[in-house]
Design a binder for these strands. Structure first.
Lengths: 210, 210
DNA sequence: TAGATTGTTAATCGATTAACAATC
DNA sequence: TAGATTGTTAATCGATTAACAATC
């Protein structure tokens, strides 16, 4: 219920996973679940689940457990999935296309409203009902449409510049697929770095140490 | 030096980031760095860096700091980046293409040796010098070429089945882009789940709570 | 040698787990 | 009511930070 600050980042990291598992249970037709059952399914302890959830409020009922649909809705609210943050995509290469085409933005708090690329040749091509615009139109477009979020699928070399431009235009959140750590210093800007390369290196470590 | 087990996962998670920052320093022409300087650059404490590195060995030198090229090589060895794990890609949609085209596998311990899709129409099309094969050829291909790793860019509904098939064919590592948690139970298999959806939800939380 | 900075031990802090009274 | 399971407090465990002797 409360969106209290001071919540550990480790707890936040687990919320999307709770949300996902509860969605799966729901689509299996399950209506209620105890922290113990959920913990077995997710590979956690029941204690941890109860502690995590009680950071935000008492969503369960003694003797019964948790009402799945209701709990999922609460977690969704905490994550802000009921928002419709206007998002623009910068970079319409394979990765940008993949993200634009397959990511379910609407169920995750976002709405994709514009796509930009620096390649003249791509201009006008449609992706998910949106035309690719030239990067030179970015400024005008932002002043008119006030996106609050940008998805960066561009080379590392271009990322910092574009990021600063966009901050100047009022963008508050960045989903960054460039191979760099973005805006670590800016105070009122949220950044989520994806770093697929780091992920692959972690897999390499895991395989090496099986 | 030692590849000792019992290393905390939190330490492992930081290793790729160290590797990346050291690479950047190197390309800036810097040769040595102290834990304090590196900590300022990365937004960590110097203590943590020294503790992390000393899980694996004493890579520094008192009064001098760390030799960047040497330290980066050591971290690379710990991560297994000097390996050439044979990897196959399952699913040649936009995401699969993006990964195949733009990921620097060779510098991260992998070599892409095959690409598969269930769409007949894609058969024979080339990506990064490799022909897309039909999924029916997966079995034969694996018996001949013994890939140790598979990259799954397929719908969640297909992931568990393909994963089990591949485990039967000797695949030991999975880089999973499907929207599900894979093989949480299998003992001798390494899984790295990417979960872009979870990442986007985290961004939603961060924006909501700015 | 003196200065710098590591490797490492000790202290602190935070996160997870266990336990149990509250309560549906 | 009795049984089940939460919310919450206390105990444990692990990770981070601080401090400093070792040493280049």
């Amino acid at each position: 219920m409360t969106n209290a600050q001071g919540i550990s980042e480790l707890v936040i990291n687990r919320l999307p996973r709770y949300h996902r598992f509860l969605g799966e249970l729901l689509s299996e037709g399950v209506q209620r679940i105890s922290s113990r059952e959920l913990s077995e399914r997710m590979g956690l302890t029941a204690s941890q689940i109860r502690q995590d959830l009680n950071c935000f409020g008492g969503f369960g009922q003694q003797g019964y457990g948790y009402h799945i649909e209701q709990l999922r809705a609460e977690i969704g609210k905490i994550l802000g999935l009921d928002k419709q943050n206007r998002a623009i995509l910068i970079g319409a290469g394979n990765l940008g296309r993949a993200v634009a085409s397959h990511m379910a933005f609407e169920s995750k708090g976002f709405r994709l409203i514009g796509i930009f690329d620096k390649k003249e040749a791509l201009k006008g091509q449609m992706i998910k009902g949106l035309p690719i615009r030239h990067i030179d139109d970015l400024d005008d477009f932002c002043r008119e449409n006030l996106p609050s979020c940008a998805i960066l699928c561009i080379p590392k070399a271009d990322a910092a510049d574009i990021c600063n431009t966009l901050i100047g235009l009022g963008v508050k959140g960045f989903w960054n697929f460039s191979h760099c750590d973005l805006a670590v210093n800016h105070p009122n800007v949220a950044v989520e770095n994806v770093h697929l390369g780091d992920s692959l290196m972690k897999l390499s470590y895991k395989i090496t140490n099986l």
